[in-house]
């Protein structure tokens, strides 16, 4: 019984050894064939690889085509820039002294409807102008698609929150001012 088992084992081991030898041989054949193909490729048509590389480069350059949105974003950035010139000059001469004034003075000043309207316009237009700018910067440097989308979304969210806070805050200040 045990003898038979041993013989069985032995023959299995022999088969395995044979298989390995056969595999090695096959592997060797394959490698040789691959080398031959490689040599044949470069010998028969050396320009083929060059032409394929050019084709790849051309496809990479054309990619998915033009998005058709470049001019639109660019125009909004320039329009907001134009609007910001007078607003920024007004802001520089009038607001900066208010920033460190006593809070009650500042609140009263902001509660005057004209001041509130001008500073509201300045902040909202600046936020629109700034989101485009930040987006361009992020597109320039953040090349991973996930991080790019996430970071631009974060910028948009912060800008939207700031815009909302500005509008609500100014409304409160105006009503307090008129009421008081």
């Amino acid at each position: 019984m045990s003898d038979a088992k041993n013989t069985d084992k032995k023959s299995k081991a022999d088969d395995a050894a044979k298989d390995t030898a056969k595999n090695d041989d096959q592997q060797h054949q394959n490698d040789k064939q691959k080398d031959e193909i490689k040599v044949a490729r470069t010998q028969t048509d050396p320009s083929l690889l060059t032409r394929l590389a050019q084709r790849t480069a051309y496809r990479r350059a054309t990619a998915l085509g033009a998005s058709g949105t470049g001019a639109a974003i660019w125009t909004v950035q320039r329009m907001t820039a134009l609007a910001l010139i007078p607003l920024a000059l007004w802001f520089l001469v009038s607001i900066l002294s208010m920033l460190h004034a006593p809070a009650t003075t500042a609140a009263a000043w902001l509660g005057a409807p004209w001041n509130a309207a001008l500073i509201g316009a300045f902040v909202l237009v600046a936020l629109r102008h700034g989101t485009i700018g930040f987006r361009v910067i992020l597109e320039d440097y953040v090349h991973s698609e996930g991080w790019r989308v996430a970071s631009i979304a974060l910028v948009y969210a912060i800008a939207a929150l700031s815009a909302l806070a500005t509008v609500v805050g100014l409304a409160v200040l105006i009503f307090t001012h008129i009421g008081g």
């Binding site: 920033l99 809070a103 500042a106 609140a107 902001l110 500073i119 902040v123 600046a126 936020l127 700034g130 700018g133 930040f134 910067i137 912060i158 800008a159 929150l161 700031s162 815009a163 806070a165 500005t166 609500v168 805050g169 100014l170 409160v172 200040l173 307090t176």
Partner: peptide
């Protein structure tokens, strides 16, 4: 400077909010 101004705009929004809130936010 554009990046600085972007942060400044958010700060400005906060300043207006703080004035409207009054109390400790203001101080």
């Amino acid at each position: 400077t554009g990046i600085v101004l972007g942060l400044g705009a958010v700060g400005l929004a906060w300043w207006i909010t703080a004035l409207a809130l009054g109390g400790s936010a203001q101080s």
